[in-house]
């Protein structure tokens, strides 16, 4: 108990206090150099274009990446749960494998796959007549490339949750719909999706929270570039805190990220409640 208290609640309170100071490399050497600056860190952040760029990049990643990832998970789960599927155990393991791999290692693999000259992805594209794309070197393509990678890495996780959710939908409902002559598309729309609604809510809450914490992908694949197009909020915090040692500013970034996550979660829960999912 004491350990959790010491290593969790205290830090959160301390993070807020820190964000009100100008804690930097001098304060690291001697606490006497520490000054209380009130909300100045927050003011400076809100005036810093790179911070806004990081927020915009992170939101881009979430808004495009989360729906793609959930769609991939749901599609894979439906295939796995189809009664026509064979070798389910093997397919489930294969589709889930990327989830347990080490993010840094697979990011290294993908950086090579996406290589502008020797990468297999460009080779595949050239075979169907598409000109090579400088995936990680072009500010327009770097974020889509990272999203593609993140979807590949993560979709298996939600797939497993969807599979469990699909198993709770009673078979009678499908039977009844079939007798009523509903096509498989209509069965999906009127039976499967409403039955899965609570699971979709849960999965989107978890996935958004996870995607807001984008860090290792840009760290390994692009180092935030090109032209700062892949600097995420957390990457920005890391550079502020552990490259420039502006720990006060970094704490303020961490707190703003926390606030963003809280707002998104609360809004989602409110929407869900209004629609009667909760």
């Amino acid at each position: 108990m004491a350990i959790i208290g010491l290593f969790f609640f205290l830090p959160v309170a301390a993070a807020f206090v820190l964000s009100l100071t100008d804690f930097d490399i001098y304060a690291l050497a001697d606490l006497g150099n520490l000054r209380f600056v009130g909300l100045r860190n927050y003011g400076e952040l809100l005036a810093n274009p790179l911070f806004w760029q990081a927020v915009a990049n992170t939101l881009y990643f979430v808004v495009v990446g989360v729906p793609l990832s959930i769609a991939a998970s749901l599609g894979a789960a439906l295939l796995l749960e189809s009664r026509l599927a064979r070798f389910k155990g093997f397919f489930r393991t294969a589709l889930f494998a990327p989830v347990v791999t080490t993010l840094v290692a697979v990011a290294v693999i993908w950086r090579y796959l996406l290589h502008a000259r020797y990468g297999l992805i460009n080779y595949g594209l050239s075979e169907i007549g598409v000109r090579p794309v400088d995936w990680l070197g072009d500010p327009h393509w770097a974020m889509p490339a990272i999203i593609l990678f993140a979807v590949w890495k993560n979709f298996g996780y939600n797939m497993i949750i969807f599979v469990a959710g699909l198993q709770t939908i009673p078979e009678d409902l499908y039977e009844a719909a079939r007798i009523d002559g509903a096509s498989s598309l209509r069965r999906f729309w009127h039976v499967t999706l409403p039955g899965l609604a609570p699971v979709v809510l849960l999965v989107s809450l978890l996935t958004i929270a996870g995607y807001l914490q984008l860090f290792a992908e840009p760290y390994v694949m692009t180092q935030g570039g090109p032209a700062q197009s892949t600097v995420s909020v957390l990457y920005f915090m890391y550079e502020q805190g552990f490259k420039w040692w502006s720990l006060g500013t970094a704490s303020a970034v961490a707190f703003l990220l926390f606030a963003m996550m809280l707002i998104v979660t609360v809004v989602q829960l409110a929407i869900a409640r209004r629609r009667g999912v909760l």
Binding site: V12, L18, Q213, F258
Partner: peptide
């Protein structure tokens, strides 16, 4: 506490 992302605690934890 599960709701609070670990990154908020990272910097104070580091200093501690």
């Amino acid at each position: 506490a599960l709701v609070i992302p670990g990154q908020v605690a990272m910097i104070p934890l580091f200093l501690m």
